[in-house]
Nucleic acid binder design. Structure first.
Lengths: 168, 168
DNA sequence: CTTGATAATCTCAACGTTGAGATAAAAGCA
DNA sequence: TGCTTTTATCTCAACGTTGAGATTATCAAG
């Protein structure tokens, strides 16, 4: 059997035999890229079913898993979410309008604002996250469980080597 | 050692012990998502160094590896690139303006257009792709080669199961 | 205190993508 | 031949993100 990445590498081997020896990272990164798109598209649909954007869902789950008081600074999302500041401001604006979160100024430093999950936000997150996990399980339903674990372990070592070790 | 995904799962385990048993797909998909962002960001910078967008680089390499006559229909990009038709039209517009590709109508079917790599497009692709592979190799420089292969093989099986088997 | 530097968030124009609809050509069928 | 359906591409407004710069607050020195 072969997948889309095998096909791509096969094409390169024929057209550019001079680069064949340098294609081995494509075996890993090419598959990561394709899988990410498939999984993201699926996750996006799940979030949409609950009326939230993909990025908004990310904010919701980050807040919920942070535990009480379910409030984090805007800056912490910046570091954790791998997007720029403008995107965060935009997300919070829309989520605030939907009543999912609220901006609160507390503490000594009045530059910082905290984004706090509202009760409504909690409910949406619980429902959406349950669907999200069910969707994930569905995607992997026909994949050997042991293979999933071993592959995930391999990816973890790559992530560690690349320095992606903290959520911040 | 632990990575960002371990930290995320650890937070869930504490805040939502009821979902712990359903988190196993996150071990795989969470890492795929994070790695995809890191790798994409890096690849984007490499492409930018050659004056092309990430998506444009995708079109260039797809054309080059397709072999002579280095021309494909717009529709084939649609199926291969996982983006919508508007994005393809937009990409080709800009690439045509840069002299990287040209639209040609040939053959019996006058609905179809073929996107053909220009000589300049060929040169840019060769240079950018060489840099791209060097960048990929650099990212994996400190990762055990055998681990890369085994992990890639695991991902291939997941892709096959999800049905991503052709480039089209 | 002031001054300068640093830090946190917001603003906003430019950009690429989405997705529904438009346009036009080809194919199927009576 | 006409008529409908299908196929291929383009149009365009809405959307989320980027990234540089503005704004406001805090901190560190003198």
């Amino acid at each position: 059997m072969s997948d889309a990445v095998d096909a791509i590498i096969g094409q390169w081997a024929k057209e550019r035999p001079d680069v064949v020896e340098d294609l081995w990272p494509v075996e890993l990164f090419g598959r990561i890229q394709r899988l990410a798109r498939v999984v993201d598209k699926s996750a996006k649909a799940t979030a949409a079913a609950h009326g939230v954007e993909h990025g908004e869902f990310d904010v919701l789950t980050t807040l919920q898993r942070s535990g009480p008081p379910y409030a984090l600074t805007a800056g912490s999302f910046l570091k954790a979410s791998m997007v720029t500041s403008g995107a965060i401001t935009n997300r919070i604006d829309k989520m605030e309008a939907k009543g999912l979160v609220e901006r609160v100024r507390e503490g000594d430093d009045r530059r910082t604002i905290k984004i706090r999950l509202t009760e409504h936000g909690h409910e949406v997150t619980r429902a959406a996250f349950a669907d999200h996990l069910a969707n994930y399980a569905r995607l992997l339903a026909d994949v050997d469980r042991d293979l999933v674990e071993k592959t995930a372990e391999g990816l973890r070592q790559v992530l560690e080597t690349l320095g992606d070790t903290t959520v911040k």
